[in-house]
């Protein structure tokens, strides 16, 4: 199980290769990649937009490890990986990678959805959007809380 919080981009194919290499028990690998959306509907071109992701070093890793441990306790995972970037990003850039590997697909699919739902409500990251001279902190969505809540109980 691997957690990385980094400024640099990641290579999804290389990560998948590394994660499943040498483990013939893995029969299913599910990958979720989160990208920066174009966040203005107006004039400013994508090239003028940027997003800055701030996080709480130390707590971020601690919370991601706790989320991963919870997933491992619920599903029979052979391997799992979370990479989350921080710093300045542009529309189209990769933000987050969640990979889950198991003998069968159901555990891999469910654990992956669980991890990204919980990550969105627990991992201490904050998005600041900047476009055309303006800036705004992205507000948390109640739909994300609802998505995480369906895994309770």
């Amino acid at each position: 199980m691997t957690i990385r919080v980094q400024r640099e981009d990641f290579d999804t194919a290389a990560e998948l290769e590394r994660l499943s290499a040498g483990n013939p028990r893995i029969g299913a690998v599910v990958t979720f990649t989160g990208l920066v959306r174009d966040f203005t509907s107006e004039q400013s071109a994508s090239s003028q937009q940027s997003m800055v992701l701030e996080h709480y070093p130390g707590m971020t890793e601690r919370q991601l490890a706790a989320i991963l441990a919870e997933a491992e306790s619920r599903w029979p995972l052979e391997s799992a990986l979370i990479i989350h970037r921080y710093g300045e990003l542009a529309p189209g850039d990769r933000i987050v990678l969640v990979v889950t590997a198991s003998a069968h697909r159901q555990a891999a699919f469910e654990a992956n959805a669980f991890l990204i739902d919980w990550l969105k409500t627990k991992a201490p990251f904050w998005k600041l959007e900047q476009a055309g001279g303006g800036r705004r902190w992205v507000e948390a969505k109640t739909s994300d809380d609802d998505a995480a809540a369906r895994w309770q109980g």
């Binding site: 201490p124 904050w126 998005k127 948390a140 994300d144």
Partner: peptide, 26 residues
């Protein structure tokens, strides 16, 4: 100390206490 806490959580001189808005990662 890098775990979520409520307002009734006890604190002491060696603690690290953080305040932040609802998170928006992922």
């Amino acid at each position: 100390n890098q775990d979520y806490a409520r307002t009734d959580h006890a604190i002491g001189p060696d603690d690290e206490i953080a305040f932040f808005p609802p998170v928006t990662g992922g």
